[in-house]
Design a protein around this nucleic acid. Structure first.
Lengths: 101, 101
DNA sequence: ATAGAGAGCTCTATAATATAGAGTATACAA
DNA sequence: TTGTATACTCTATATTATAGAGCTCTCTAT
C-alpha cells in the first residue's frame, strides 16, 4: 500500500471506528451504533460502503423474532487494515533517525 | 487517542501523505507537490490547515533569489502521528486472538 | 525600463461526500 | 389492529476537498 493511495475505508472516523470495532469480533448493528454514536441512516450507509468494497460482510437474520444485522471483518479487510498500519509504521520508523533535522 | 476522535489531519490522503513525507525530514513546497501530486492551490490550503492545527511549521524565505516555503513536522505532529499509529496497532493487536470468530 | 519566469500564494466555484432525519418495511406481541 | 423493535432507503443539507484562475513578489534577460 502506498501513502498516496489510501483506501477510502480509512478516511473517515466512522468507517475507521467500525473497522476497528470489528477487528475484535463480530458486532451487530445496535452494538456498532452504540460504539460509534452514529445515526441509523449514516451507519447503514457506511456499512454498505464497507461491504461493497469487501472490507466487511453483512448477515441479516431474525433472532428472537427480531431482525438482526451482524457485521464481520473479512479476511481481505483485516489484511488491508494490517497493511495500512504497517505502512504508517514504516514511515514512522524512518522518522526515528531524523529527530528534528 | 480514541478511535472515535481521530484528528482531521489523518482523514485525507493528501494531508496524510504530507505528514508522512515530513516524518523523514523537512520538505519544501515543490518537493511536497511532487510527492503528493496535488495542485498548488490545494496543497497550499492543506498545508495551512496542518499549520493551524500545529502539526507542521512553515518557514518562508528566499533562497537563490527565489521564494522557498519549507515545511517541517512539529514535535506535536510527530507525537500525534505516533499516537495514531499506536492506537491502530492496539486494535490490530486485539484481532490476533480472534481469528475469524 | 520592461517583459517574462519561477515560487507560492489567495480566492472562488465546483464537486464530492458525510451526515441527519424522516419515512418505510418487516416480524411479532399485546 | 395497534404498537414496538430493528434496520433500512431516500432525500436534503452541510461540510470539505479540490481545481484552477489570477495575484504578488523577486530576480533575469532584453
Amino acid at each position: 500500500m502506498e501513502i498516496n493511495a489510501i483506501p477510502e475505508a480509512f478516511q473517515t472516523k466512522l468507517r475507521l471506528a467500525v473497522l476497528s470495532a470489528l477487528l475484535t469480533g463480530k458486532k451487530n448493528f445496535r452494538e456498532l451504533k452504540a460504539i460509534t454514536g452514529a445515526t441509523d441512516g449514516n451507519l447503514g450507509a457506511q456499512l454498505k460502503k464497507l461491504e461493497e468494497t469487501g472490507y466487511i460482510s453483512i448477515e441479516k437474520a431474525f433472532v428472537n423474532n427480531k431482525p438482526q444485522t451482524t457485521c464481520a471483518m473479512t479476511a481481505y479487510g483485516r489484511e488491508q487494515f494490517k497493511e495500512y498500519v504497517e505502512m504508517l509504521e514504516r514511515h514512522l520508523g524512518q522518522s526515528d533517525n531524523v529527530s528534528d533535522k
